[in-house]
Write a protein that binds this DNA or RNA. Sequence first.
RNA 1: GGCGGUGUAGCUCAGUCGGUUAGAGCGGCGGCUUCAUAAGCCGUAGGUCGGCAGUUCGAGUCUGCCCACCGCUACCA
Length: 519
Amino acid sequence: MSESFYLTTPIYYVNAEPHIGHTYTSVVVDTMVRYHRLCGERSFFLTGTDEHGEKVLEVAEARGQSARRVAEHYSNLFRQTWDELGLSYDRFIRTTEPGHKSVVQGILQRVYDAGEIEFREYEGKYCVGCERFLTDRDLVDGRCRDHERAPEKRTEANYFFKMGNHFDWLTRHIEKHPDFIRPERYRNEVLAMLREESGLGGDLCISRPKSRLDWGIELPFDENYVCYVWFDALINYLTGIGYPDGPDFAEFWASAEHLIAKDILKPHAIFWPTMLRAIGLEPARHLNVHGYWNVDDRKVSKSLGNMISPLIMKEKYGFEVFRYFLLRDMAFGLDSNFSEELLVGRNNADLANNLGNLVSRSLNMTKRFANGRVPEPTESEGPESEVIAVAERAVAEVDVQMRAMRPQRALEAIFALVDASNRYLELREPWKAAKDAELAGRVDTTLYTCCEALRIIAILLSPFMPQSADEILRRLGIEGELDGAQLPQSASWGGIPPGSPTTKGAPLFPRVDLDAESE
RNA sequence: GGCGGUGUAGCUCAGUCGGUUAGAGCGGCGGCUUCAUAAGCCGUAGGUCGGCAGUUCGAGUCUGCCCACCGCUACCA
């Protein structure tokens, strides 16, 4: 296994507030990075905001503010939200940072010098109302759908990146590395896109004349133009780790992974690898693509007002419950549905009844039958071996699933240990055995086994629900357990010290009654 | 239109290279239990694996056609 791990979120566009989709992306990255840190890998979590382009200008004009101010406002909103949710990013990058500007200009110059950027005129249908060229999709009966007027023919000169030069290489790369784009469904889609793009010539327009748009990074070889969109935005992944000659750049880039939602597949799967190729860098190790969240079975949209603010979810249910739901209910890559009913169902079934209650019953009996201290195990028989086997399987399975970018499967593996522990208690019935003095040793073993299972559960769960994991460990009397912990060794059986003072505490995850709540 | 995807128990989904009685979780139902957050455990659910045809000794699992839904077709996670 590699000793470092670099994972990025997309940089979020600064024309809207963070919603469930942004939150999911960021939470998956946070969880993955926490896991890799727990494995002792040197890890880097990059996120940030994409602040240039037309749409920011539109918002700015509508508000009578400067583009810079609008960008600043939303950028702060994203950063403050992630801070309040406790996401452990290492760097929050903004495309308006001077450092990013010089990296982008350096790369543009290099690609230009290499002859991969071409200047030429093209003719298109320009809508004066929109102040931009229209695509066929924008037209209804030959008229602009927004302004209901026929576009005029206009020519404009722009710079084009000849990414088509690298399509053959990219196709081979994708074929040679079957998991470069994962899950597989998106790989197929990209291969199809490549065939289609090839037919179109494979040029990417990367400039806008300042006369039309001046909110962007100036082209180093032509002061009349700014760099347009993706060329500016994608490069953040390099700037973020110190390209070109920062001390950590080479190490982290060699282990780079991107995580995106499916809507920006094309820029990441086609534009970005070809851009990297043009400057002599390898593509990222993996491009991980997830699906969309629907809310109450409908698409998320501003007009429906169903954006789902993570801060409101935090206030209502606690962020870790929301986070658990997101990670547990979406099969990575597929679309999924969110509703408060589903969230509450997960909370009650998995968190309250299974995990929370296991903590309660285990620690309550440790208090009653073992004076509130983790007892010394005396014997180990079949039932204990079974729990140990499930624990060992969980550690191994979590690793496999996390490295395959399947957080929901990893959680299933952890909860298999929760279930096994609950079953184990039924089998051993310590509440009965405690009444028989001859079975005292067995009660000790039973409670030890439960406490140790909980320790392992908490360690494995810590990337997913860091605060809840800390709380379980605190109640087990081993508060600093995660300091310096490293998987898989730290989760091997037998790590909890007998004699550790336990605390029962209030229900870790209270059940939620939706009916009662709405009254 | 083109390209891609999806359609398996009430719900959400697993089903590896085609092979014995098609699986899991949730919900529902029945029972056991009382340490615990009225939690837990055990047992159940008889689903034409979207439809039709084909390949095969044998198909949810491969091929063709059809139906339904969804996504992409240059800038919303």
